[in-house]
Design a protein around this nucleic acid. Structure first.
Lengths: 223, 223
DNA sequence: ACCTGAACACCGTTCAAGT
DNA sequence: ACCTGAACACCGTTCAAGT
């Protein structure tokens, strides 16, 4: 008589950490950070909220794991033959493009200090600073400056996207609202802010991000 | 017969937006971000949760208002006689010291894009970039690079403090745990991260922050 | 105009009970 | 070993009712 298949394959779609993370990413992309609840997630996975806790410790770990999957993919960019500067730009742009597609990683990144997603970024950039000629005792400062800048941009990006979603508008309408508000500021108190208000409407986020990276790289080159 | 005092003074401690914000800051400083709830706040103010909504639209506005009070104070630093570079350093350090005393502002800052606290920072820094000789069409990029770096540092700082609180340990024990974890990483996969793990224990946050600001200022000076 | 506080519609997390 | 789903202890927010 025939053998039964191994019990682990008894059900085609048994729960696993990776399936949970995968479903979480789909929910986060579609409904944003506030859309990811254990109830919504367990419904999508056709199970109960408690089942998820067998595979994941808590919501923070879930967000970190989802973020880690995106960051790992974003950092998978070809670096061969590139100068250290070009490699760092490529790494940074990989993360930028990842955060455009998955804005919620900005929030997850800052809430996972020292965790796997951050370690991946630190390691990727850190390997380049040596080749860049940065003295060993200053490499940490150089890497953490780049990291802080990247985290700053990505957390702002996450907040913009999330707030726009709450108000039921898109990202550019949200920025337009800020631009309008800045234009209406007191000319005596806020001359500079008023002067750049119009630029909020038609600037290129990606180009500005890269310009920021280049400013820091310029500074690093003097070390 | 005597006139009654104006009805607005009938009660010594009537509710007001500023009293609510003041109480919020005290709670945030003492119990962290998760400690600020409408129930805790209304109990402290000897009222009901609903009363607060007469003065404040929602929790986001409350956090932004609390953050704004701290940022306004932090930016109140003397700048007369300073070079533009020194002024920017003083502004940045003012925010840094503000976030050391009130770590939760890091979270509030990133969740209030384009709002008053951000505008204050943008304006303070932006006024210096002109004096710095940055071409007008590049001032926005220069300011937003500094802003993103500052927001990145402050949101990491907020997350560190909040996570340490959740685990019931202090900030340096939390960093020690990360340092230990980094030291245990795979030597082949994470050589750089391992190499800087030990430095997490005894580095000077404030000095590193200023070093990051200086890197960006160096880059800006080439514009 | 301003305050009260019960009620609503959610959360993350736990845990006895099942298979 | 893994899953179920009710229950617990919270949230932010609303709103009829008061003063």
């Amino acid at each position: 008589m025939q053998r039964k298949a191994p019990s682990t394959q008894r059900r085609e779609e048994s729960l696993s950490r990776s399936r949970i993370v995968e479903a979480s990413i789909e929910i986060l992309d579609k409904y944003g950070e506030s859309g990811l609840t254990f109830r919504a997630l367990s419904e999508r996975l056709a199970t109960g909220p408690g089942a998820i806790y067998w595979h994941i410790a808590n919501k923070g770990e879930l967000l970190t794991a989802a973020c880690d999957a995106i960051v790992a993919g974003a950092l998978d960019v070809p670096l061969v033959g590139k100068t250290p500067e070009a490699a760092i730009r490529a790494i940074a742009l990989g993360i930028f493009d990842g955060m455009q597609a998955h804005p919620w990683i900005g929030s997850a990144l800052t809430h996972s200090p020292g965790q796997s997603p951050i370690v991946r970024i630190v390691e990727s950039i850190g390997r380049q600073t040596g080749a860049l000629g940065v003295p060993e005792d200053q490499q940490r400062v150089a890497v953490s400056a780049l990291l802080s800048f990247i985290l700053g941009v990505s957390s702002q990006n996450a907040a913009n996207t999330q707030l726009a979603r709450v108000r039921g508008i898109n990202r550019s309408d949200f920025l337009e609202a800020i631009s309008t508000a800045w234009s209406a500021l007191d000319p005596d108190e806020y001359p500079f802010t008023r002067s750049i208000a119009a630029q909020l409407l038609n600037h290129d986020d990606r180009r500005d991000f890269l310009a920021g990276i280049d400013l820091i790289l310029k500074g690093i080159s003097t070390l």
